[in-house]
Nucleic acid binder design. Structure first.
Lengths: 332, 332
DNA sequence: TAAAGGAGTAAAAACGTTTTGCGTAAATTT
DNA sequence: AAATTTACGCAAAACGTTTTTACTCCTTTA
């Protein structure tokens, strides 16, 4: 309602010049204690808050870091964002967050939006290569970009080690005495699925085990796990250890096995991925892997800050380990 | 790296004045087709993006709406934010999002931050009355505020109808033939819990049923549901319908009942709240209520926009109904 | 005691846009 | 053919800060 209070109003009220108000507030030049007090009193009583726009006109740095993210309701996104907030807290930068970026077109708009706000760096947080659709030459982008969660060529990337997760899953099942492993995959086009599969099958081979050639691709959901478990046990009844691409699939898989009369874990052991909330209290608590999502956010910020301040950063791929959380579904 | 491209650079490259560049881009004044093309070409080749700060110096309106939210990893927060994004998409406003606001102190900092950015309105998205801690006189705030999710005195509020949810839960259980209802509550200090309880017990009374005086307050989690179910059935073995304050509790409750030898739903029916992802595929799929979270976000935006443009908005409390989702846990 | 330095402040320039005022040429009307 | 409008474009002012320059006192220092 009321017209915005400017530095001039404060100056007038305190009986000083605008320059003195700035100096009193920012401390770039000495100001006498008496004057400072008068200025602060005026600021308080008028409710003056400096205009960000005006103040950022001068200094080249905006103090803003942008974040371009996929659907915020996705756990992986909001966990990473949480980490980003943590990494930023206490520092000088504030976050400009744009989510719901699902197409290259959204991305282009959002990128220009951030650029118009003079962000000093961008955190890209996605699970799809939409950056490709948007033909921005990221190499020549004058804004440093760090991709969190996805290995994006040409960008510094912070990614979870899905491969080693799969590797460890095989290792774990083998250690439990299982010799006939199988995997129920999720969507074939997801890189995370491919990595988990690759790690799993490579360790399976190393340990001289055999697994079905069928990958049981499908949704990342309960129903797929349920149905795939049925098919799998029908075709490969000797199977004694199943690695599922995520916990939804694992939950469905366990339910499917139980429905068929198998007992988990005594007859078949199941391992999931992602450590969803229900996994800990599922009717057979699910052995799973926890992704270092928050840590990825924190690290992303730290790297980005470094790039911003030094102008370059050598290592372009940072891999964080996921953590095995053993629960009853694979207990010996 | 490279120095920022300004409107002057574009003007020079296109051989026109800066004013013409603006007009070509914003269309406030007619520009000849030929000139426009030359300008756009220059913009493209130089990668010019207008400085938001500079352009917002003139026009009083920033075009930004702020959102102050609790922990973004909370489902209710990210769902509402998703709704807000939807409500904003296609419009003229962009979103400035600050989450992780957990104390009055955070709030004060964030509020000033938004104010310095000249946001035109604020969406407050929380489940705790932290606004009280922060002694801002919201009545006199020159920035319009809409509180989404919580009934905040002195603010326009958009809230889910937890009371009617509870009411309908009692109705539903009664309709299934149940006559000895009980409720397992969550944290006593949550307004949502109190509302759900109040609605439930008022309908219980209206229908001349009786319920235990004990409220079984506790965590919003599985373990609490499990343990409370045990206590409840021990003390009130005639109980045939249990309303749980949320789905985590309901899941634990069902598991507890099964462990004790009760069958769900044939012996005891269970109703939860919040429609968590696992509820649909829990070993007995859980009857629950879906909160209109996204709708709340959308409505919040729409109201805020209205307040911004008209300067006032009469109705200060908007209640959106939650929706009963009947599943097997209460099937007759 | 004169020169040098420092503290405190004001005035003015600058940041990169948009808006306003004005001028010119072309198109339309009378 | 004269008068009026319209299309187009430039120059300059304005937005609200911060930064730079400069000036005045008041201390030090030699």
């Amino acid at each position: 309602m009321g017209d915005p209070v400017t530095i001039m109003d404060v100056a007038k009220a305190a009986g000083v010049s605008p320059a003195t108000v700035t100096h009193a507030l920012n401390g770039k030049r000495p100001v006498s204690e008496m004057t400072r007090k008068r200025v602060l009193a005026a600021v308080e009583s008028l409710g003056y808050v400096p205009s960000w726009n005006a103040s950022r006109m001068k200094s080249r740095s905006s103090g803003i870091i942008g974040c371009l993210a996929a659907d915020i309701t996705e756990t992986f996104v909001n966990q990473i964002v949480r980490g980003i907030e943590q990494g930023l807290s206490g520092g000088q930068h504030s976050l400009f967050f744009v989510s719901g970026i699902e197409f290259g077109n959204d991305l282009k708009k959002a990128y220009h939006f951030l650029k118009s706000h003079k962000v000093e760096g961008i955190l890209f947080c996605h699970h799809l290569p939409i950056w490709k659709e948007f033909n921005l030459d990221t190499q020549n982008s004058d804004i440093p970009i760090v991709s969190v969660n996805m290995d994006t060529p040409g960008m510094i990337s912070v990614i979870p080690d899905n491969t080693t997760g799969g590797y460890q899953a095989a290792e774990h099942l083998y250690g439990c005495g299982m010799r006939y492993p199988a995997m129920i995959c999720g969507p074939e086009d997801r890189l995370s699925v491919q990595d988990r599969l690759q790690g799993f099958s490579s360790r399976v081979t190393e340990l001289h085990m055999q697994m079905p050639t069928l990958r049981y691709y499908g949704g990342y959901d309960y129903d797929h796990g349920f149905e795939a478990a049925n098919e799998l046990m029908r075709d490969y009844p000797e199977t004694d250890g199943i690695f599922c691409a995520n916990d939804y699939i694992a939950a469905g898989c366990i339910a499917g096995l139980q429905k068929m009369g198998y007992e988990v874990p005594s007859q078949v052991r199941v391992v999931g991925f992602d450590n969803r909330d229900f996994s800990s209290f599922w009717n057979v608590p699910i052995t799973t892997f926890e992704l270092p999502l928050q840590e990825m956010g924190i690290l992303g910020v730290s790297i980005l800050k470094q790039v911003i301040s030094t102008g370059s950063y050598a290592k372009t791929k940072h891999v964080l380990q996921s953590k095995l959380i053993p629960r009853q579904s694979s207990r010996g």
